[in-house]
Design a protein around this nucleic acid. Structure first.
Length: 263
DNA sequence: CGTATTTGACCGGCGC
DNA sequence: GCGCCGGTCAAATACG
């Protein structure tokens, strides 16, 4: 048991910047604009964490593709446009995107009853406990999120992911899926959930940087690009007040490719 | 048979 | 201290 390897950081998504640990407030920017930025389409997203410090600020952006040539077109094929909203951690206000954990006085529906599976069947064999790192400090990797209008939950991004968990989201009828990069030493994680407000939108959150190239070429999905025909942005406006992208991204993100990866 | 997913249990933090 | 909550593990299962 003790020979078990590091359980690595379990402190993954929550951002404990000091005060409110659970206060997941995000500000996102809608990105058809900054999508133009060269920094983005470069590699999908390379976030130089060093620029801000580990516990500071960092965000990236991934240019995404709807990837729904044959799958998502069932029903409304007009959709499928990929759009983005970058989520910045450690933002000041505007609780929105993933504010599932906070709000609770609105559409409170099936939160604990129907969605939560009643685990009344204890496993007798489960005596082994998950080992933990000895006094290991958990450092949160940079993470960023964006929303995509798609009927597919898990968008293809050129990497291979292994699903390692799924949980019901509070105040949301849709579950949240946890993925991890299948590569050996790559500890990039990914969280996918559907918006509780707009079910046609999925929220994808990445954490960490890949230590390798993606399977196909690199960069993000570019299978078919039938990107924006109409106004993909229209539907993505559930945030109360989106911030301006300028300054945020350009300031932090460095234009250098991920060739300096250790490991 | 190997690999990926499913799924309940478990864990650690926080709030009460 | 207990319960909630979000996240993760791992055994079982599904899938090729």
């Amino acid at each position: 048991m003790d020979g078990k390897e590091k359980m690595d950081s379990e402190l993954s998504w929550g951002f404990g910047d000091g005060g409110d640990a659970d206060n997941e407030s995000y500000s996102y920017l809608f990105g058809s604009d900054f999508k133009d930025s060269s920094i983005l389409n470069e590699f999908g997203w390379n976030i130089p964490v060093d620029s801000c410090g580990v516990s500071g600020c960092k965000r990236g952006f991934a240019d995404f593709d709807p990837i729904d040539p044959d799958l998502s077109r069932s029903g409304a094929d007009a959709e499928g446009e990929a759009t983005v909203a970058v989520v910045e951690e450690n933002s000041t206000s505007a609780s929105v995107l993933a504010s599932v954990s906070s709000s609770s006085s609105e559409m409170s529906t099936e939160t604990g009853s129907s969605t939560a599976p009643a685990a009344t069947n204890p496993a007798p064999d489960r005596a082994k406990k998950v080992g933990k790192k000895q006094g290991e400090k958990r450092i949160r990797e940079a993470r960023f999120a964006f929303v995509t209008k798609s009927e597919i939950d898990h968008l293809e991004d050129g990497y291979r992911w292994r699903k390692y968990g799924q949980k019901a989201v509070k105040n949301s009828p849709f579950p949240r899926s946890y993925y991890r990069c299948t590569n050996s030493n790559c500890r990039v994680k990914k969280r996918v959930e559907r918006s509780w407000e707009d079910s046609s939108v999925v929220i994808t959150t990445y954490e960490g940087q890949h230590t390798h190239h993606s399977s196909s070429s690199f960069g993000f999905p570019h299978h078919h690009h039938h990107q924006f025909h109409n106004n993909p942005m229209q539907l993505l406006q559930y945030p109360p007040q989106p911030r301006q992208p300028q300054g945020l991204l350009g300031d932090v993100i460095a234009p250098h490719p991920p060739s300096d990866m250790p490991n």
